[in-house]
Design a protein around this nucleic acid. Sequence first.
DNA 1: ACCTGAACACCGTTCAAGT
DNA 2: ACCTGAACACCGTTCAAGT
Lengths: 226, 226
Amino acid sequence: MMNPTRGIKSRRTRPAKDPLSREIIVQTAYELLKKQGIQGISMRRVAKELDTGPSSLYVYVKNFQELCAFVLDYGLGQLVLPTSAEGSWKERLFDALDAYLMLLFEQPGLAELSLTTIPMGTNSLRLIEFILSALYEGGVSSKAAAWGADLFLFYVSSTAFEHVSWKQDGNDHMSVIKQSFQMVNPVHYPLIASLKEELFSGDTEAKERFRWGLEVILQGILKTRH
Amino acid sequence: MMNPTRGIKSRRTRPAKDPLSREIIVQTAYELLKKQGIQGISMRRVAKELDTGPSSLYVYVKNFQELCAFVLDYGLGQLVLPTSAEGSWKERLFDALDAYLMLLFEQPGLAELSLTTIPMGTNSLRLIEFILSALYEGGVSSKAAAWGADLFLFYVSSTAFEHVSWKQDGNDHMSVIKQSFQMVNPVHYPLIASLKEELFSGDTEAKERFRWGLEVILQGILKTRH
DNA sequence: ACCTGAACACCGTTCAAGT
DNA sequence: ACCTGAACACCGTTCAAGT
């Protein structure tokens, strides 16, 4: 029997570097996300940016999904929440959600992440706690507050994602969809045909539409006693 | 000067087959999605299933994103909408959204698609038209109906996606998140700590929670005059 | 017009080997 | 414990060549 390791030489071309850390990995990934959008974030790109191989990251991060969860939470660190002194609970709630939406607008990669990733870390906990406390102050029952917070967060994510995919694609996929709504057969789909403008309300109405949705969800929560 | 094509032999090993069609491509992709979930759908897998190369698909589909849009719409073809004879407009609206949710539950790959893809085709138009007509019957203004339909559809998608990612991952990513909520520091996040059960309401409450959300959105729409 | 093979430029993840 | 190189099994997309 031959020793299978016989004759194998070291493949190393350089000595091992200083240890990485989860923080520097997440930071680097966030920087890439900021610069290049959702395309810029991958295990291999982060590794290359840190001048190492992708396998090195797996010591600090279980997989790509977990990296995304940390990156999203890291991005949420930018969020400035209103202090409890300013305005009514409703104003504070809406201001916080507005700030969250603005953050997702500024970093379009974050909007996409927020839709499919549950963030992991203290920054998302901070945001959730803030929403719960506002609703609690508004006299919302505990179950409705928990479920309502989820609903609000999802509404923000979906609004941001819609907005982002509407403009990043530019002149391609989205304009095809817009066209197919414009050309819809009024005999088969009379309401869609007559409401096509409203269904595809553009950039100018975006703020008004978002505000309307917040109001709808809040009024619904207040009205729907559990 | 040498002719650059000189010496290049045909690389063909078999004659060209019958033409494909968009329909058969979308059908095949949907079948793969059904059998293997979101992982099963890719240009290369669909091509292999059709015994051809991935480049062949680009005659009928602009890119992967467009394929997904067609597949989602194709899946929506399974949806059975209530006839206008049965029940009140509200019952019909909720029944339709319930049926949509059930469809997304049965085909978990579809739930993921529905969150990030705008469907393209007649089946999604059918669903939107149905929701609009129910809201119209309920006396909702046209703008609120358009925006509300969007809100309802997104709510269904997000509910299905949450449910799917909760169980498909099985014992991995989701249980880590669940644990981090269980262990949250009650000093820093008192409301999260006290509401951790409600924030993570399990399978048993899923139906109740979904119903609550529908009620919230509808009541909100009816209350929030534009 | 549409099919075919090959290439280009990527992915996430694993693992033996080395320090 | 953690870094390293290489491999494995994939991606979407493009393009010259062929029918």
